[in-house]
Amino acid sequence: MDNPIIKLEGLTKCYGAFKAVNGLDLSINKGEIFGLLGPNGAGKTTTILMMMGLTEPTEGKAHVCGFNATNDPISVKRLVGYMPDSVGFYDNMTALENLMYIGELNGIPRDEVKGRALETMEMVGLEEEAIHKKTAAYSRGMKQRLGLAEVLIKQPQVIILDEPTLGIDPSGVKEFLQLIMKLSREKGLTVLLSSHHLHQVQQVCDRVGIFVKGELLVEGNIDTLSKRLFEEKTYEVNITIEDDVKFPWKDEEEVLKLDFVQHVSAKGQNIAISSSRDVTPDIVRFFVEKEYRVNGVQKKSYGLEDIYQKYFDSNLKKQIDQ
């Protein structure tokens, strides 16, 4: 635990006056799957490029596998597999040729490279007929798999995937993420994946970091995140009734008089009530007594989506306040 495989210290990148990444501190341990979450343009890709030594940081240091990524990128690239968000291949070569080319660039001897390439393709689930197909004819999902094969052929210690699930259909995403998880567990790989798809990240990551406007707002596993965020927060109940309520709702005052209820908002057939404790039964009883025809009662539970939304909202508000 004390020896992180990726260690970022005060990493900053400016493009002119624009700060793409601002004083990022992060450490990731060996064997962990870390999810870097953030909206588009949050600086995820820039951070990854700095870790790979493909972009020079304006300030700060990035240590990957014990090497300084800025001064010694070649050593880092030997040990780290990186899959960019838009994977492209040489279209005039077959998938196997593409893979063998990358293998050779990583110093795999020529007589071994073919065997290794076939092995890796099998590992990522590329079928027999796909191997000798030109990559121009590949579907997006197959390209992602081939991209993963390319990352794995060098037998890396760390793999960095930039938006690996972009543009694949839902079932493909699930399969792909399970594959990553399986490989990580089997080989003890450290995985860093960036995404703006929360559900997907939720499925596989041990730890996530939420990254907005170049700053890491919060990091930790999903449970701690939601606890920390919502400990003094409210419960929310959504009630749907059959008839529209008129505005202003005549019973609003009375609902507010119930114990623990903090806020009521009514709109159309929906009434949202937030309270500091779980008072759903009281609320339902109130509605029944008032002879509303209740169609549904929904208690909200918090997932990563809400955590994410929460952080974005508070960040937005901060900006407006400024």
């Binding site: 070649i74 492209g88 291949f89 040489y90 660039l105 060098k154």
Partner: peptide
Amino acid sequence: QNGTLTRIMAQPVY
């Protein structure tokens, strides 16, 4: 344009 540049640059090649 094809996205191969980033990939090649991520390999241990100067």
